[in-house]
Computed example of a mutant assay.
Amino acid sequence: MQQVVQDAESGRRHADKLVKVWARDGSETWVLIDVEIQGEAERAFAEHMYVYHYRVFDRYRVDVVSLGVLTDMTAGFRPAGYRWSRWGCAIEFRFPCVKLLDWQARWSELEASENVFALMVMTQLRAKTSRDAEECSVWTFQLVRRLYERGYPREVVLELFRVIDWMMRLPEGLERQFLTAVYELEETKKMPYVTSAERFGIEKGLQQGLEQGLRQGEAAVLLRLIERKYGPEAVTAYRNRVEQADAETLLKWSERLLAAETVDEVFH
């Protein structure tokens, strides 16, 4: 997707996933999945959905279906299409969107579902709505326990475990308690999925690499959000400051980003 959307006048942009699938009748379809991960509604979301869509079509000349997945917590943010018209020339582009927030009222359905993506939706909702780290820790363990209880293959459990751990990041003290609880759960279930070597790696990562890895990840996310809200020029202007900032400063800037009208307000 990067090759498709680069070199635009507005700068380099990235879509999340572009996949080729086959319908039940055997026909080929390309699916563009754009995931809105900002904590607030993005005014230009519908426009860049349209831009991504026509660039894929222009490059490959194939049928493209664009799907939006909204993970923000703004109930009224529900883009459904992009429209433009002037002097009799008009464009109307419509696309379906899924709002994860809608599933909060359908929590029992998620709990009953055997679909692994139900767990991912539950994780995202709890990550957004948990009030404090203790509550987040409780929910993280409950979600991981469901992985073990549903009998998924070891590879699936470990992959989803990593995703949940990434989405529900806990402070170091609670992280250790959480891992201890997971080890005890494995012993009870007789499912030693997390090996001794992996446990050692996790512990070592907590002691040596957690701070640096988190800071780099937070910087990358902040730069992406700045690009999507203010444009690539803002990223160019502030990239060095973001990449050199400590974790506390990155958090402060991220919080300012939610309400700032201009990029200068974020950093001053």
Score class of each variant (00 low, 15 high):
174 L>Y: 04
167 M>Y: 08
95 F>M: 14
78 R>K: 13
31 V>T: 05
153 P>Y: 00
78 R>V: 10
1 M>N: 03
85 S>M: 11
262 T>H: 07
28 E>N: 08
141 F>V: 09
118 A>K: 00
230 Y>I: 04
122 M>E: 05
175 E>M: 14
75 A>N: 08
127 A>F: 02
84 W>Q: 12
134 E>H: 15
57 F>W: 12
183 Y>H: 03
74 T>F: 04
13 R>Y: 10
46 A>G: 10
104 Q>A: 06
203 E>H: 09
231 G>C: 08
220 A>Q: 09
49 M>S: 10
12 R>S: 13
136 C>A: 14
152 Y>Q: 05
58 D>G: 09
81 G>N: 04
121 V>C: 00
235 V>L: 03
80 A>T: 14
214 L>G: 04
229 K>D: 02
86 R>M: 11
37 I>C: 09
223 L>P: 01
38 Q>A: 15
244 Q>C: 08
129 T>Q: 10
20 K>C: 13
215 R>S: 04
207 Q>F: 03
178 F>N: 11
237 A>S: 06
173 G>F: 07
91 I>E: 08
183 Y>C: 06
87 W>I: 12
42 E>K: 13
85 S>I: 02
93 F>N: 01
31 V>E: 01
220 A>F: 05
235 V>P: 00
229 K>H: 11
27 S>M: 05
53 H>W: 02
28 E>S: 12
52 Y>I: 12
143 L>W: 00
139 W>M: 12
150 R>H: 10
254 S>R: 15
263 V>D: 08
71 T>N: 07
234 A>S: 12
109 E>L: 14
227 E>C: 07
99 K>P: 08
128 K>G: 05
30 W>Y: 06
112 A>I: 02
145 R>E: 15
143 L>M: 11
175 E>T: 14
208 Q>H: 09
36 E>V: 05
162 R>W: 08
89 C>Y: 08
71 T>L: 14
53 H>T: 10
230 Y>L: 07
244 Q>M: 13
88 G>N: 06
124 Q>K: 09
89 C>T: 10
59 R>Y: 07
240 N>S: 15
219 A>S: 12
111 E>C: 11
194 V>R: 05
78 R>T: 11
249 T>Y: 00
193 Y>N: 03
252 K>C: 03
231 G>I: 02
68 G>A: 15
113 S>K: 00
